[in-house]
Design a protein around this nucleic acid. Structure first.
Lengths: 154, 154
DNA sequence: ATATATGCAAAGCTTTTGCTGAAGA
DNA sequence: TCTTCAGCAAAAGCTTTGCATATAT
């Protein structure tokens, strides 16, 4: 996502700082995975990161990729893009509508909003032909917002 | 999603009609899974549907749930809510932005749009405390829009 | 030194597949 | 009857976990 070497360097320093602040080690693997993520335009999968990091570090394992991605998320320097909670979910409501997703309990609820309902695809998508728009409002559901327990972000 | 018996009945008739039109059998399992989906407010997972359908049909198998969900999607009476393509994907760009998702090849790309960028959470979410909004524009990417091959929808 | 992390292999899940008997049209 | 489907069990992913060794601080 960051093209130029300079800003990548800045991000890597940030990673190191956060590791130190959290009492986590700065390891070549963490640097390499984060760099690969920074350099990619592809929103890579764990497998793709594995392939790319392995080029410069043939000894790295897939398990380390998974553990490192978890660590990077804990450090707040990357995140997984939407899976709408943990599991696959289905619905029979095919009308245009949107979803709220609780980042703590995973509950998904429908909502409608006239502003969102009438959203049209943005222009300038570089050849992309839109067929629909889904909006996800993430946050805490009523039940979870009312109770303690600190661990969020999808 | 449909509360009253009447509209559920209508939907079930619609299912039967579509099965016949597609040369697919109308089976008790398909009826039961679709009914469970219609009656649920939970955006159920395959496992949850299995549990719920099994109450009235103890012999049903999990494999049938999966096959039936696939069939129902093919028939256009239900869909899976967003997994943003097939696989888990990560990114290091934590700035507010949104994604396009190609329903054919699964490619995910970023986009920004001032209208969407400034979206505020809708009111009236019944106690839900929003922390962010993600917009997914689904459709065909430039490459896929240019080529043949008929099988879409995420 | 001491705590933390890596790599490997094994285990755990979820999802898919092949096959045979059963059921729908 | 003839095709399609359900159920079972096995296979095939993908992800996590346990543990011994190696590394960071």
């Amino acid at each position: 996502m960051e093209r130029d070497a300079e800003s990548i360097q800045t991000r890597l320093e940030e990673l190191k700082a956060r590791c130190r602040k959290s009492g986590m080690n700065v390891t070549p693997q963490r640097i390499a995975v984060y760099r690969a993520l920074l350099e990619s335009e592809e929103h890579p999968t764990p497998e793709a990161l594995f392939a790319s990091v392995r080029e410069g570090m043939p000894s790295i394992s897939l398990a380390t990729i998974y553990k490192t991605l978890e660590a990077l998320q804990r450090l707040g320097v990357c995140h997984e893009i939407s899976r709408l909670g943990e599991a696959r979910r289905f619905e029979a409501n095919l009308d245009d509508h949107h979803h709220t997703v609780c980042t703590r309990c995973g509950r998904v609820a429908d909502f409608d909003d006239e502003r969102l309902g009438s959203l049209s695809p943005p222009p300038g998508l570089d050849g992309f032909v839109p067929t629909g728009i889904h909006v996800q409002v993430v946050g805490l559901c009523g039940a979870c917002a009312g109770s303690p327990d600190p661990d969020d972000e999808i």
